[in-house]
């Protein structure tokens, strides 16, 4: 079996079986990463275009390396150095790329729905690498993989996602993905960053960090965007950190072996204290490592069709 759709746009559209397939495929891709010669021919002759309208280090690099290890030809396009600066529309950029016959286009874009917009207009598979505050499915998949790898299961686990839920595509994708895999999800943050009706997504809502992290198996901290201070969403970094920063002190109310995750990039000392980020239960770098394998799995499942190496 494979994935039902041409594209990977959201966790919303994936079935439980598809998520399992992706996580299982990731397992075999991790072996490739451990080899001396990190190259398999699965995507030889295939072309992958990374189309990034927002800056990114880990996601773009991760897709690029994943493509290269699978022997695809990888091209990176960033909006700031492309025809987008000349006013080209997303539709026209998409059609132009299509004329070059890529097999996969990975798009990151500040507008929710941009990946779906592109997918409807391209014959190539489109992978959503983050659209506005909507979804970032490869992040949720690597998070699920990382948790499963560490704890051996997903079903029955409890996670707390903490921070700016309103503007977070990572939160939305993880809420959907975790719930599909049988996890229970809590969200917490300042009231100004909890979108209205979020509880209708089936999550428990907290504005108190310590209450939110008690009894959970996984704590996922979200990056605070400093510019939200100007928008009046929080008064100061100092107060944010005091109320919603994860510190060793705060962790005392949590289970002793609780896993600490963060999609990065982190603001050390703001949403997460350095000793927690670097501590024994932090999975932040495992997430990055697994991100590569998850993206190899996605590329392989969408464009491979042949044998994994």
């Amino acid at each position: 079996m494979g994935l039902a759709g041409k594209d990977l746009l959201s966790m919303q559209e994936l079935t439980v079986d598809e998520i399992r397939l992706i996580l299982d495929t990731t397992e075999s891709m991790k072996d490739v990463a451990r080899r001396d010669i990190k190259k398999v021919p699965a995507l030889r002759g295939k072309t992958l275009i990374n189309l990034f309208y927002e800056s990114s280090t880990r996601t773009r690099t991760s897709f690029e390396i994943a493509g290269k290890w699978l022997s695809a030809d990888v091209i990176n396009i960033s909006a700031s150095s492309s025809s987008v600066t000349k006013g080209e529309s997303l539709k026209d950029t998409g059609l132009t790329l299509q004329a070059m016959h890529p097999d996969i286009v990975v798009i990151r874009h500040p507008s929710s729905g941009a990946a779906e917009f592109l997918a409807k207009r391209l014959a190539a598979s489109v992978i959503n690498a983050g659209d506005g505050a909507h979804e970032h499915p490869s992040q949720a998949l690597l998070d699920l993989y990382t948790i499963r790898e560490k704890l051996g299961r997903l079903e029955g686990l409890k996670a707390a996602i903490i921070g700016d839920i309103a503007h977070s595509r990572v939160a939305r994708s993880n809420i959907r993905g975790m719930q599909k895999m049988g996890m229970e999800v809590r969200v917490a943050g300042p009231r100004t960053m909890l979108p209205r009706f979020i509880e209708r997504l089936g999550v428990e809502v907290f504005t108190d960090l310590e209450r939110a992290v008690a009894e959970v198996d996984v704590i996922m901290m979200l990056r605070l965007q400093i510019e939200r201070q100007q928008a009046g969403l929080f008064p100061s970094l100092r107060e944010y950190s005091r109320l919603f920063g994860l510190t060793a002190q705060r962790l005392k109310v949590a289970q002793p072996q609780v896993l600490i995750m963060h999609p990065g990039p982190i603001n050390r000392g703001v949403e997460i204290a350095p000793d927690v980020a670097d501590g024994p239960f932090s999975l932040i770098l495992n997430q990055v490592e697994n991100g590569l394998a998850v993206r190899m799995a996605l590329l392989y499942l969408l464009a491979g069709g042949g044998q994994a190496g």
Binding site: S112, G113, D131, G132, A133, H134, E135, A166, H167, R169, R172, P195, R196, F197, I198, R200, L201, A231
Partner: peptide
């Protein structure tokens, strides 16, 4: 309204659109 594009309600929350 700010930079909102759709009604602030469950759908804006669900789709990650500014409300």
């Amino acid at each position: 309204s700010g930079r909102g594009v759709v009604h602030e309600g469950f759908v804006s929350t669900d789709l990650g659109l500014r409300g």
